[in-house]
Design a protein around this nucleic acid. Structure first.
Lengths: 229, 229
DNA sequence: CGCAACACGTGAAAC
DNA sequence: TGTTTCACGTGTTGC
């Protein structure tokens, strides 16, 4: 039971039984090699530490010793990447706030870092995130119905940011997407979450190429679309 | 020289020499226990993995096996704390971004309204985020076509996490949604981003209430769906 | 001297 | 079947 018995301590169903000192037990004068118990304690400690490390890693592939080490290493690499991405994002966000004089220069260089898809995704998701959770200026919002709300903000001349709350019904979002597509809008970055029977949609939409998107006009159109679905 | 000899591989000055099979070498017919070399390879692999893990942890206290595990665990905890702190700070910074000096009272109340939903949204988005950018193990992915890829991971018995890369065409995502809806899937938290002609979708899908979702089975179904659209 | 850490070979269980 | 992984006891080394 003691020692580095991963199979047992880890909750694996197949415990193994060490063959141990069961041989020559008639007149057991086996020298026992003085440090037998010390070695047992050492192995126990090691197994405890190994399982402590194991419990910290979320992605479980196997209960092997090698796999535990692999998973832990991979997880550390992921965490390091994530910390780096978050730090960069934080710097960029602070630069967007315009507080530091040197911030805009950093922003340009950091933009170059966001080349890979995953990082770009982070950007868009975090943008949707901030748009949804924290830009709470609903002064221009239109209450279309119960549990229904939406807001349109202009990002640039070709892009609009919209956020929509609609009751969560089966084909609601699909219909909305379809209608938007029919009307010539293109959804770029979108996040959806559902909560207590309502659906919260945040999206960055783009019109046809060369077309100017004007917030108030689009808002009226969206109002009609949402009413219709 | 081989095996899990930390003291040697790790650059410790005191290399130890295993006592090895030097005894009974007159007429060495020691059984050699068939898996002797296999065990050597195993130990070598373990030592390599252990050192790989070791090299990832900046704070070195000792070269012990136990210490390596301890340091790695402590480092992971530190990284997790750091990620949490950075995330919070990022959200706070984005909240402050664009705030006038007069954060009006109505805004405060609106913050409260959005707090619950915002937190839930934040969790779902961060989950999608981690799923997309973190777990880059695409070993189980199925390449359906050019610029097309998808992966299915099991979250729990009722939820599956999917990520899909498909070429960005007008009604592609709408069709995908429609088909999923027809097949009885319910999209809970979804994030979409488009990049260089491809569309990256990350979603947490739920089956009908009470229905068990099995990853491999669903993967086959999704493959057919994606082929079909 | 003891104490702690380690590599090694080995039988055996699991896959 | 054979391969892989594991716990165990032991001799050894450095402090």
């Amino acid at each position: 039971m003691d020692g580095l018995c991963l199979s047992e301590i880890g909750g694996c169903k197949n415990g193994r039984i060490g063959q141990g000192q069961l041989k020559d037990d008639g007149n057991n004068t086996k020298y026992k090699s003085k440090n037998l118990e010390a070695e047992k304690r050492r192995r126990l400690k090691l197994s405890q530490r190994l399982l402590a490390l194991r419990s910290l890693v979320p992605k479980i592939t196997n209960m092997n010793l090698a796999t535990i080490l692999d998973d832990a290493a991979a997880y550390i690499v992921d965490l390091q990447k994530y910390v780096k991405a978050l730090s960069d994002q934080l710097l960029e966000t602070e630069a967007l706030c315009g507080d530091g004089p040197q911030a805009s220069a950093d922003k340009m260089t950091q933009r170059k870092i966001w080349k890979e898809m995953g990082l770009r995704f982070r950007n868009s998701v975090l943008h949707c995130l901030s748009m949804l959770t924290f830009e709470t200026d609903w002064s221009n919002s239109l209450v279309v119905g119960a549990q229904t709300d939406f807001q349109v903000t202009s990002i640039n001349e070709h892009k609009l940011g919209i956020k929509v709350i609609i009751p969560k019904r089966r084909s609601q979002f699909t219909k909305l997407l379809e209608t938007l597509s029919i009307c010539g809008f293109e959804l770029n970055d979108t996040s959806i979450t559902t909560f207590k029977g309502t659906m919260l949609i945040s999206s960055c939409i783009k019109g046809a190429p060369g077309e100017m998107l004007e917030a108030s006009w689009t808002k009226g159109l969206l109002q009609e679309i949402i009413k219709g679905i």
